[in-house]
Design a protein around this nucleic acid. Structure first.
Length: 270
DNA sequence: AAAGACACCTGGGAGC
DNA sequence: TGCTCCCAGGTGTCTT
């Protein structure tokens, strides 16, 4: 579920609550996440102080002096802060317990999420090949244009490729293409530089708007305070098959690209 | 090297 | 009510 805006919303919520706090222990109830959580992870955290909460793509990093706890929320994960933890429920797989009380609880029904300890996060295998941040300075029209040269893959799949740019998941890639007026199936290498410049701008806009609204809640995403995100109200095409385009009234169409549902307006997007 | 298929897993909703 | 089937916000890995 969580794309960049949801992860960023979680990061901001967490930052406020746990920076400067010391970890008492990591209590793991279910080790079978996307990758088995080894004993090493918990052992590395005990007694360590959290210096910062950062985000790289859809990974959250709880930074400590000697490394970072890497958290990915997969498709269905969420983190909640509990000032006075109650009994864990179904799918509450881990608690990061803090000295002085309170914990960060990791819940993930589908278990596609992950927990790793990385002594050197930037060189960790899961992070080292990631492309630029879409809201950062290096994600420019020139960069995207260069990355598209010679590529015959559909622009939507190119945009969702984490080596090209991070954080653009199915919802926001879909929405950015609508805002940019580009057909999701158009070959990446056959889009003019000018139109790619517009796409860069619109992807930034849609992500920034969604962060502003606390992310998108379709099913079970909640922020650290347990509240949903409100960007669903602003979705122009995602999950709107057959409904009228908000610009021209043409029914929104649904196709499948790279085994992912894709929505677009056949009139506005070329 | 690039592109596509598949894998992991549970829950919710539609349809019968 | 209950069963079956399909779908879901991600992404690493394997195969062509």
């Amino acid at each position: 579920m969580p794309e960049l805006p949801e992860v960023e919303t979680t990061r901001r919520g967490l930052e406020r609550l746990i920076v400067g706090r010391t970890i008492a222990n990591l209590e793991i109830r279910e080790r079978r996440l996307r990758w088995p959580v080894g004993n090493k992870v918990a052992a590395e955290l005990e007694g360590r102080r959290i210096g910062a909460v950062e985000r790289r793509g859809k990974y959250l990093l709880l930074n400590m002096e000697h490394g970072a706890l890497l958290i990915h929320l997969g498709m269905s994960g969420s983190l909640r802060y509990l000032a006075s933890p109650d009994a864990p429920r179904r799918h509450d797989h881990a608690d990061l317990c803090l000295v002085g009380g309170g914990c960060v609880r990791f819940n993930d029904p589908r278990r596609f999420g992950s927990l790793h300890f990385a002594a050197d996060p930037a060189r960790h295998r899961l992070l080292k090949n990631l492309g630029p941040e879409p809201l950062g300075e290096s994600f420019t029209a020139d960069y995207l244009w260069a990355s598209c040269r010679g590529r015959r893959v559909a622009i939507k799949q190119h945009l969702m490729n984490g080596r090209v740019v991070v954080g653009a998941g199915n919802i926001y890639a879909t929405e950015a293409l609508f805002r940019a007026g580009i057909h999701p199936r158009r070959a990446a290498g056959r889009i003019s530089r000018g139109r790619l410049a517009i796409l860069v701008a619109r992807l930034r806009d849609v992500l920034a708007d969604a962060v502003e609204r606390g992310g998108t809640t379709l099913r079970n995403y909640v922020g650290t305070d347990g509240r949903p995100g409100y960007f669903k109200l602003e979705l122009d095409v995602y999950d709107r098959e057959q409904m009228p385009c908000k610009t021209c009234g043409t029914p929104i169409r649904r196709i499948v690209l790279g085994q992912r549902a894709t929505f677009f307006c056949p009139c506005c997007q070329r």
